[in-house]
Simulated assay, not measured.
Amino acid sequence: MIRVLVADDEPLIRAGIRMILTSADDIDVVAEAANGREAVETARSNAVDVALLDIRMPVMDGLTALAELGRAAPGVRVLILTTFGERDNVLRALGHGGAGFLLKDSAPQELIHAVRAAAAGNAYLSPAATRHVVDTLASPAATLRGEEARRRLADLTERERDVLALLGEGLSNADAGARLHMSEATVKTYVSRILTKLECENRVQAALLARDAGL
């Protein structure tokens, strides 16, 4: 069972998140917090696998709490949840060791998927957040140069390159499937195959390669 801490200063938001997460058989919301400081103290004293933190909270914001959790409870995987998709917030969250960044207008199933991914030790970024990261970090200093990226992409099939290009645009599996006239499950299979071939740990790394290679 994945044990989750939900931190948001709005009780209705916390209740909604709890309802969504507990609808999954493998997730249990074991604690709640109304601000970042409370979240850090709660995570320190409770067995928590994943902490879901809102960015804008009183006393201590979510990004500061993320940094504090890295020291107080390093085993807790942190997902940042917010209505604000500015790229600097995304980059700060990743820089502080966040497991992912999810926008509050994401679909309920995406929230569940993100928690599962974080608990499994994987990074998760919503498609919108991925677009911000790719735009900001796709530079020679931050990613492989174009020549090296194109060399790594050389072993991909034409269809795999099509899927990868859409990852670079920040599309979800469902949206990529609609664009390519494939089922979501088929796209998921392609993504898994692409990550293996490119030796990438997650979709963001693959998206950066796609951008650097000029897809």
Rank of each mutant, 00 (worst) to 15 (best):
T22G: 13
E10C: 03
A141D: 11
L215V: 12
I13L: 03
N89W: 12
S172N: 01
E68R: 08
L69D: 05
D25H: 00
A73D: 14
A174T: 13
R161Y: 05
G16F: 00
M1S: 04
T189C: 00
G214R: 01
A165Q: 09
P74M: 13
E158H: 01
Q109N: 13
L81E: 03
I80H: 10
D88V: 09
E38M: 04
D105V: 02
L198R: 08
A118E: 09
T157L: 00
A118P: 14
A24K: 01
L53C: 03
A119K: 09
A119S: 12
E110V: 15
M57R: 05
L5D: 01
G75Y: 04
A24F: 08
V29A: 11
R116P: 04
E10S: 04
A31N: 02
A213C: 13
E32W: 04
D49P: 09
D25W: 00
R37K: 05
L103P: 15
T143S: 08
Y190L: 09
L12H: 05
L153M: 15
V40Q: 07
D135N: 09
T82N: 11
G100Q: 14
V78K: 02
L137A: 10
I80R: 00
R211Y: 05
A73V: 13
A39P: 00
D28Y: 01
V187N: 08
A118D: 12
A207L: 14
G168I: 12
L144E: 13
D105L: 06
R77T: 06
A119R: 06
V4Y: 01
A114N: 08
G146E: 15
A119D: 03
A176P: 04
R44F: 06
D8S: 06
T196K: 15
L167D: 05
I27H: 01
E41H: 10
T136R: 12
V78Q: 03
A51F: 12
L66V: 09
A141G: 03
S23Q: 08
L21W: 02
E32Q: 01
E160L: 09
I194Q: 13
S172I: 10
N122W: 01
L94S: 11
R152K: 06
V76P: 05
V48Q: 05
L137M: 12
G98L: 09
L164F: 10
G70M: 14
D25K: 01
V78L: 02
R14F: 03
N202G: 14
R193W: 11
R56G: 02
G85Q: 08
P58E: 05
V134G: 04
A185Q: 08
L66I: 07
A93F: 11
L79D: 05
A51G: 10
A149V: 12
L79T: 07
S45Q: 15
L180H: 02
